[in-house]
Design a protein around this nucleic acid. Structure first.
Lengths: 222, 222
DNA sequence: CCTCTCTCTGGAACGTTGTTCCACACCCAG
DNA sequence: CTGGGTGTGGAACAACGTTCCAGAGAGAGG
């Protein structure tokens, strides 16, 4: 019944473990987080970590939730529902752009607590837009799935680029590959290859959000 | 210079390996494919497989490409561009719904050859819809990312449900969890929880496609 | 003050994985 | 007949997530 907290300064805790995990994931990517390296980084053993964290999946989920917390905490209550959705989606994008491993996690597991909050916010704004009740679930899910798709592709790109080259160099190589595809079979991809290296990911992501929002208002007013 | 093919009947080949890999992935999910089990299934050793396949990533990519080939081969040249996009997206959905592991692969790696063909088809129909040149790349990417997001979530759900329960039972449990969330914080999710167990994934996916297409025509005619 | 117990630690050990290595069989060209 | 390239399969390696366990440390109760 007594105070069972023995938290001295240097003690292990779930928070310290998650924090160290985030640091290692940011530095070494998804493959940079192992229990051995994490234990070494915390100057302890692998077994001690399991006292505070059930397994690696839970650790990844906690790290992703932590990284997304900032994007979710942002206030709304201002401007239009469209702007609120844009701000929320942009915040999520910034988080997964800064921590690509979190994007991979989001698109790999079913909806987890942090993303459930995002879904709730999206749904509330969809409701505020006056969408018929029968369409709210489907249209909010469309927004969520689009966000998750971008999250996964962002992480995939980050994983593919990391070796030695930098991003524009990598995209330039992909673009020249696209430009050399068969002209009869890939006319569209050849025509857009030039836009690939210079395009702004965040801007393109938000343009997709706007496209879906345009569909929402068009269908609602049908 | 001579015919260097020694292909007798029981010999190993990349095609046989990919075929066996697909069978094992379909039966045991993403964790059901190991080089040892694959070697045993093919009555050979793990080392022999590496003569025909570079590594596991390449094997997964080939298996995913094979599974998507049918969806890509479907003809177009009929009806409206909207219908062509719906048919293509529906074909991709059917493939990843039947082989969830392929959906996970698509959302985990950068665009690969099979998906590049899907992107090409999407872009051609976006062009056929009369979309301004400056928006074609972005809007086709929006469609692709939405498809990839659904692919990833489908795979995540399939991985979460497999233990012993079946799908409606699992979704019912998730829905009752949603219904018991805090009323003040999660009004939207509580209001849509009832739709979760009975909803049709394919129908909802195509409704999302329609939503984006509505945005395309609305923005185009702005 | 002693001792019991519960929390927490850290390193060894286990089983499995992807991958590499290598000795060896097979078969066609010379 | 014989050499070398093509293909095979099983042993071996390094790394991983996870489990196990002996024990340190501190507070509670006698």
């Amino acid at each position: 019944m007594a105070t069972r907290t023995r938290n001295t300064d240097g003690a292990l805790s779930a928070e310290r473990i998650v924090g160290a995990a985030i640091a290692m994931l940011d530095e070494g990517g998804e493959s940079g987080l192992t229990f051995r390296a994490l234990a070494a980084h915390l100057r302890t053993g692998a077994g001690a970590i399991y006292w505070h964290v059930a397994n690696k999946d839970e650790l990844l989920a906690a790290a992703t939730g932590e990284v997304l917390a900032g994007a979710i905490a942002a206030e709304v209550a201002e401007r239009t529902p469209e702007d609120a959705i844009r701000a929320l989606a942009g915040g999520v994008f910034d988080a997964i752009d800064e921590h690509p491993w979190a994007g991979a996690q989001l698109s790999r597991v079913p909806i987890q607590p942090a993303m459930l909050r995002v879904f709730e916010r999206l749904g509330q704004q969809i409701q505020a837009l006056g969408v018929p009740a029968a369409d709210q679930f489907t249209w909010a899910s469309a927004l969520l799935n689009y966000i998750l798709g971008v999250a996964g592709q962002n992480a995939a790109l980050a994983r593919a680029v990391e070796p030695g080259t930098n991003r524009p160099e990598f995209l330039g190589a992909v673009a020249s590959g696209w430009a050399n595809l068969d002209a009869a079979e890939f006319p569209f991809i050849r025509s857009v290859a030039g836009q690939l290296p210079a395009h702004d990911d965040r801007e393109q992501f938000l343009a997709g959000i706007d496209l879906i929002l345009a569909g929402v208002t068009a269908r609602r007013d049908r």
